[in-house]
Design a protein around this nucleic acid. Structure first.
Lengths: 244, 244
DNA sequence: TGCGCTCATGGCACTCAGTTCCCTCCAGTA
DNA sequence: TACTGGAGGGAACTGAGTGCCATGAGCGCA
């Protein structure tokens, strides 16, 4: 049956009865796959799992959470990974490696991940929930990059764009692996996708248009197409001179 | 009181009684700002608006939707804008312009947009809803780019990454404007942010601080001391451009 | 004029997610 | 034995969202 995701850091010796949390996840996925997500009520789940209804909401804040039982831990792992780096790390490489942590979580339980992928694709509520989870990953990456790019002109803009690109590339690779029913090489797909991001934004790619980083401080260079409307040129200048 | 968002394409002659939809939006925002989103029930809204509870759910599929009353139309505008382009259009320019459509919607009602921004920042449920809206914009951009990049190696990957970058840049500019309580220049902020995306991904980088490998013929370079009065800079540019 | 049709609205009751409050059970302990 | 604290169970409540039906206004048509 559907494999339960990894336990928390509790005791590893639980031979006879699986802990309630795992029972709930297993029961939920069995029913979701059999009758659909919306057709399954929380009462159905707790009945199958043999626990009280109140206990469900003790382990999962909402019905949606039971579908993503390990994202909270993964997010904690990611923030810890990012905060444990040094200033020597290339920032883009670092966030790419952080994204690989998420991939690893998915790859640990291929059939579970594929089942969940099929569920989230067809249930709008679950898709929305997943978006909010992905958003938290993206925020974690962006926060890290904002710190690393602090002081740089348009640092937060760089951080936000690169974080979004990394997440998009990761998801592109991840989804192509999930669509293959977990048959292909997940790491290869994501590495390939992240490679493009690194080529675009990475250190040797010279970054995006870092304006005047090497210029003397009191000079601004504006390059504009001949024929560009004047109001647009003025607007560009104004927004550039405005310090963030 | 809180300004109602733009009507649909209905009759423009409705002097005495605002249509039910607008009454609901106005009543909802009044209560949300006064007591908070979660503290306000749908019953409160319909009572204040003077309509039946059942009518609320006829106009808005959920309580969250009343906070984003015009996104559906904007999304339709965007998809229509994208599908009405030609193959001559630069794809990156096109999606940047599509993003500007969203900005225009926000800029049309500054105070409404700022109020909504404050709400979505503090209510997790609304934030999640907004994420799902943004996701649909991003999907529309990515779909367009996938078609334009069809046949190209890693076309869908490029499409996904660029769409994500455009959305992130747009949101970066939009948020900075929203944080200024709608005082700053929204278009300038977003143009500036999108300029970086164009410089990173665009075919011809014709923007601020573009990597200056362009044909000199198309390009004007203005060098100016920081602190120079704006009128002097503008005059400099104008006189330069007038030379043709 | 009156008949029937359609459509917008209101009202009522229902399901179900999520919460609050309180209960029991059990382990450890003095 | 009594005390205590935490884990779990259960009843009742709130509120979002839905289905069903009644009402009433407008409208074409005989």
């Amino acid at each position: 049956m559907s494999e339960a995701p990894r336990r928390g850091p509790a005791s590893d010796a639980t031979p006879p009865k699986p802990p309630i949390r795992d029972s709930l996840v297993a029961a939920a996925f069995q029913l979701f796959l059999e009758h659909g997500y919306e057709q399954t009520t929380v009462d159905d789940i707790v009945t199958l799992a043999g626990v009280g209804r109140r206990s469900f909401f003790r382990y999962f804040p909402s019905k949606e959470d039971v579908v993503f039982p390990d994202h909270e831990r993964c997010l904690a792992d990611m923030t810890e990974f990012l905060s444990s780096g040094t200033d020597e790390d290339d920032p883009v490489e670092r966030v790419c490696d952080a994204a690989r942590l998420v991939l690893r979580m998915y790859a640990e339980n291929p059939t579970f991940s594929v089942q969940r992928y099929r569920l989230t694709r067809k249930v709008p509520g679950l898709r929305a929930y997943e978006l909010s989870v992905v958003w938290r990953y993206e925020r974690a990456l962006a926060e890290y990059l904002r710190v690393r790019f602090a002081g740089r002109r348009d640092g937060t803009l760089h951080a936000d764009v690169i974080a979004a690109a990394v997440v998009a590339a990761h998801n592109n690779g991840l989804r192509s692996w999930l669509r293959s029913d977990g048959q292909g090489d997940a790491a290869a797909a994501v590495d390939h996708a992240l490679g493009h991001v690194r080529d675009t934004f990475g250190a040797k790619g010279a970054g995006i248009a870092a304006p005047a980083q090497e210029e003397p401080e009191d000079v601004v260079v504006v390059i504009s197409k001949r024929g560009t409307p004047m109001w647009r040129v003025v607007r560009e200048i104004e927004s550039t001179l405005r310090q963030d």
